[in-house]
């Protein structure tokens, strides 16, 4: 799936991946999709938990070569 913007949080540890993702998605429009890249294992649960809790939509989660990829659609 295509995305509108991307943020690479590789090497960052908790809480920074969520902090940076929040700041980025706040600049986007409802319905647009943000791609998030992380390496912190804690982020695998925290990114989806954050997205669902604050009204965004988790579209895709994947792991490849020690990196985690997420597609999050901005809520209203």
């Amino acid at each position: 799936m295509s995305h509108n913007d991307e943020i690479d949080c590789s090497g960052m540890s908790c809480p920074l991946p969520v902090v940076k993702s929040k700041m980025k998605i706040d600049t986007m429009n409802p319905g647009e999709v943000l791609k998030i890249i992380t390496t912190d294992p804690g982020s695998c649960k925290d990114i989806p938990a954050w997205a669902n809790r604050v009204g965004h939509e988790m579209i895709e989660e994947a792991e490849e070569n020690g990196k985690y990829y997420f597609l999050v659609k901005r809520g209203e």
């Binding site: 809480p15 969520v18 954050w50 809790r53 604050v54």
Partner: peptide, 8 residues
């Protein structure tokens, strides 16, 4: 209270 509540 998850930390992202404090951020949001």
């Amino acid at each position: 209270i998850p930390y992202f509540d404090f951020l949001e």
